[in-house]
Design a protein around this nucleic acid. Structure first.
Ligand SMILES: [Mn+2]
Ligand SMILES: [Mn+2]
Ligand SMILES: [Mn+2]
Ligand SMILES: [Mn+2]
Lengths: 156, 156
DNA sequence: GACAGAGTGTAGCCTAGGCTACACTTTCAC
DNA sequence: GTGAAAGTGTAGCCTAGGCTACACTCTGTC
C-alpha cells in the first residue's frame, strides 16, 4: 500500500490528506527544522537568563547562571565559551559575563516571545504553573509566523 | 541587588512577581524538566512514525524511517537500537521494525497529542503550514495538564 | 541459479552538553 | 596582610545523536 499524501475532496479538488502521512520530503524538512530549532534552544535560554541577571543584579556570574539553570558550574562555563565563539557573549576570566549587541538583541526577542507564549497558554486556559513550565520548552519552537498569530489572538 | 521572586500586591498579599525572575529552585526545576522533555522527543517521533508506517504500509523499514526523518539510515538504525533497549520496539536483522505494547501505547498518546496541538494552533489563527511545522517541536513540551486545557478550549 | 541493486548493519569519527575532580584566583573578615 | 571561603577554570569522562565508508544480505530479473 502506497501513501500519496493527497486526496480528492467533495468538490473534486486535490488537497493534502489532513489525516494521513505528509509527503516524504515535507515531513523530512519538518523534522529537520525542528532539530535546528532545538539546537538553538540552549543558547536562547542562556542569553535570556544572562540578560535578566544583568538587569536585576547588575552582573551575571557563571555560578549564578549555573544555579538558575540547574547545571554544574563547569557545564555553564563551557556553554559560555560557546556563546563567545558564536559572538553572543563577552567574558574575561573572573570578570563575569556580558552580552554583545547581537546577544542583547537576541535576548530581547527571546524574552518577548517567552512572554507571549506564556500569555497565550494562559489565555486558552492553561493553569499558571503548567504554562510557565511548558513555555520554557515550547518557546523555542514558535516561529515568527506563529508568534504573530499568538499576538493577534491575544489582542482581540 | 537581590532578586526575591516575590512582591506585595495592592491588597497587601505576598504574591510571586509575575514580571521578574522566578525563584531560583523553581527556575532550575523548570529548565531541568524542559531538558528531560527534550530527551524524550526523539523517541516519541520514532514510535509515532513507526506506528504510522505500520498502519499505512504494513511495515516499517529502517530506510523508510530514515527518509521520513531526514537522517541517514545508519542514524536511524542506531536509534532503533535505543528503542529496543528501552523496550519500545522489536526488530530482528533484515526483518523490519515493530512496536511493543508499550511502544504502541506511547505512539497512540503521541499521535493524539500531536493532533490536538495542531488543532489548537489552527484554532488560535496560526496558518496551516506553520502549525504543522511548529507542532513537530512544540508537542514534546506539552504536559498532560496543558493538553487537557487545549482539549477543553477546542471543545467550546 | 546468478547477479545487480536495494536494503541493512557495523565501525569509526564528530560535536553538544552533561558530569566530577582538582587546581587556581579573588574576595572578605579579621 | 593573611587565611578561609567562594568562585572560576581546566581536564577528562560519559551519552546522545549526527555523519561517511564499507561490508554484508536479501530480492527480483533474467
Ligand atoms: Mn526555554
Ligand atoms: Mn525562556
Ligand atoms: Mn515531533
Ligand atoms: Mn509528531
Amino acid at each position: 500500500m502506497t501513501v500519496t499524501g493527497i486526496m480528492v475532496d467533495s468538490a473534486g479538488t486535490i488537497v493534502p490528506r489532513p489525516g494521513g502521512l505528509p509527503e516524504e520530503p515535507t515531513q523530512a524538512s519538518r523534522f529537520g527544522k525542528a532539530r535546528t530549532a532545538q539546537s538553538g534552544a540552549l543558547l536562547e535560554d542562556y542569553v535570556e537568563l544572562i540578560s535578566d541577571l544583568l538587569g536585576s543584579a547588575g552582573e551575571a556570574r557563571p555560578t549564578d547562571i549555573a544555579r538558575r539553570l540547574g547545571v554544574s558550574h563547569a557545564t555553564a562555563i563551557k556553554t559560555i565559551g560557546r556563546l563567545k565563539r558564536e559572538g553572543l557573549a563577552l567574558a574575561k576570566p573572573y570578570r563575569g559575563v556580558f552580552l554583545t549587541e547581537t546577544g542583547e538583541t537576541l535576548a530581547s526577542r527571546v524574552r518577548a516571545r517567552h512572554r507571549v507564549v506564556v500569555d497565550l497558554l494562559l489565555a486558552v486556559g492553561v493553569p499558571r504553573e503548567a504554562a510557565e513550565q511548558d513555555a520554557e520548552g515550547i518557546e523555542h519552537h514558535v516561529s515568527d509566523t506563529t508568534l504573530a498569530a499568538f499576538d493577534r489572538f491575544l489582542r482581540r
